[in-house]
């Protein structure tokens, strides 16, 4: 199975009818980087995440995984992990059943991988409980582990801190740093500038589908954001 160490978006646009969700965006990220996709609601962050995940086809432009552009083939999808707005979990099934199903779907050894993922989510003793009985934060932690079950190279996270308490936020940020250190390419769409500050290594600021800023991260992210969004 082919691997890649960088992802490039080249002049990517995505229109839904007359609405331009993403317009002429070019951006790249290498292995070990955490890219912060920032911007107000409707900026196009989630659409861009969908394009990177191969779930949304760009209207124009190209996405290059490693050396070349590829279609949404199975080998490529095996290297992508996505945590979207919704948890991608079946509420009627237990945490263990959910993780086992997705582990088998990704062709990874179910038993040991699932045990490890449940522990990482802090749900080692709740594995047999139905997901419908979990709090928002527990679902989010489980959803993150589901997205990382197959050790993806490209990790796409859309608002991963939603519903998490302080301790869980710390656990997740540590996890993201470890993932990047292990060679993953992490794209993180978030509104939480305080959490992004110090976590992301690269900042991509979007508004109305367009890229306003694409630069290495520096301290004082909130002030920079306010200055740009206020003046844009």
């Amino acid at each position: 199975m082919s691997d890649f160490d960088q992802v490039r978006l080249v002049d990517v646009s995505r229109h839904f009818g007359r609405r331009r969700a993403v317009s002429h965006v070019s951006l790249s990220a290498r292995s070990g980087e955490i890219v912060g996709l920032l911007g107000p609601n409707g900026a196009g962050k989630s659409t861009l995440i969908g394009v990177l995940a191969t779930l949304v086809a760009p209207t124009s432009g190209g996405v290059y995984y490693g050396d070349g552009s590829r279609g949404a083939d199975a080998a490529l999808r095996k290297r992508i992990g996505l945590l979207a707005h919704e948890p991608h979990l079946y509420p009627e099934l237990s945490a263990r059943q959910n993780l086992t199903f997705f582990a088998e779907l990704y062709g990874v050894k179910a038993r040991e991988t699932v045990d490890r993922a449940l522990d990482a989510a802090g749900l080692g003793d709740r594995g047999e409980d139905e997901v419908s009985g979990f709090s928002r934060g527990m679902r989010q932690r489980l959803a993150l582990e589901r997205a990382l079950l197959h050790r993806p190279r490209l990790v796409l996270l859309d608002e991963p801190f939603t519903g998490l308490d302080d301790r869980s936020v710390g656990v997740v940020t540590d996890r993201l740093r470890r993932l990047a250190a292990d060679g993953a390419i992490v794209w993180l769409a978030t509104h939480d500038l305080d959490l992004a500050d110090g976590l992301v290594t690269h900042v991509a600021l979007m508004r109305d589908g367009r890229m306003l800023v694409n630069e290495p991260a520096a301290p004082g992210l909130r002030a920079r954001y306010r200055a740009l969004i206020g003046s844009a």
Binding site: A75, L82, H85, H88, P91, L105, Y106
Partner: peptide, 18 residues
């Protein structure tokens, strides 16, 4: 409707499966 709730159909489509 079950696959819509939680957007699990997207998770299925993202899996490395035909």
């Amino acid at each position: 409707e079950r696959e819509r709730y939680g957007e699990t159909l997207r998770a299925l489509l993202l899996a490395p499966a035909p």
